[in-house]
Amino acid sequence: MSRVLAVLGKDLADLRQNPAIFIPALLVAASGIVMPFFVAIIVPYVAGERLADSGDFQVALEMYREQPGTRDLDPEGAIQAWLFQQFLVMLMLAPTAASMAVAAHSVIGEKQARTLEPLLATPITTFELLLAKVLAALVPTLLLSVGCYVIYVAGIAMFARPGVYAALLTGRSLAVMFLLGPLAALAALQLAVCVSSRVNDPRSAQQLGALVILPMAGLFVAQISGAFLLTAAVIALIALVLAAVNAALMKTAIALFDRESILTRWK
């Protein structure tokens, strides 16, 4: 574990020296935070029309008025709660998508900087190296997620109807943000690291790693269209699938990390 921490510490120190790499991440996260406020608060305010006056949100209205915790919300508050919770999936994905650059650059970046060969000449194992690389991308992702979530809930508490923020503090919401989020992030980042050790261009790794985002984005679309509902059982099922995917990805990454090819075919 000390070797994992050594490389992880190095990568995090390197990231601290290069904060500009997180500018796209911060922009994506900021847009992920701001967009729901546009939809739930700003647009209705500018249009002079309450969400509750629209017939489009009746499902949300009924669903939230049946649930403890949001039952006491007025119709406008219930719809806002529904919207803010739907966008939570997107907020969960934003930091992951943004940290993809870090993961995609992890192995190919070492290759290009000619720092990989001396590193591989040490006793570090492939598992330790890849784990360190994935964690180095995951740690900023998680920090960004927590930061986004705190700002999101604080913004809701300040600008939404009274009590709406409580809908974002339910077990379900917290599970989406802090269980599904990290697991999805881990899968996406592992895939990016995995691809990063097989290609000669970080852009390829970034694009291929982003494929993991697609199912999660699909989940968001399905959910917001009413075709799918993230119940506790669904969240648990997705979490199990993601855990299995993560385990399989690590095994695959180790199998695909061909030290000899990396050393002898790099340019």
């Binding site: 190095k10 120190a13 390197d14 020296q17 290069n18 900087a113 000619r114 720092t115 990989l116 060969e117 001396p118 590193l119 000449a121």
Partner: peptide
Amino acid sequence: LTETPGLWERL
């Protein structure tokens, strides 16, 4: 000692 120093430049 590899052909290039291979130091992490930002560290």
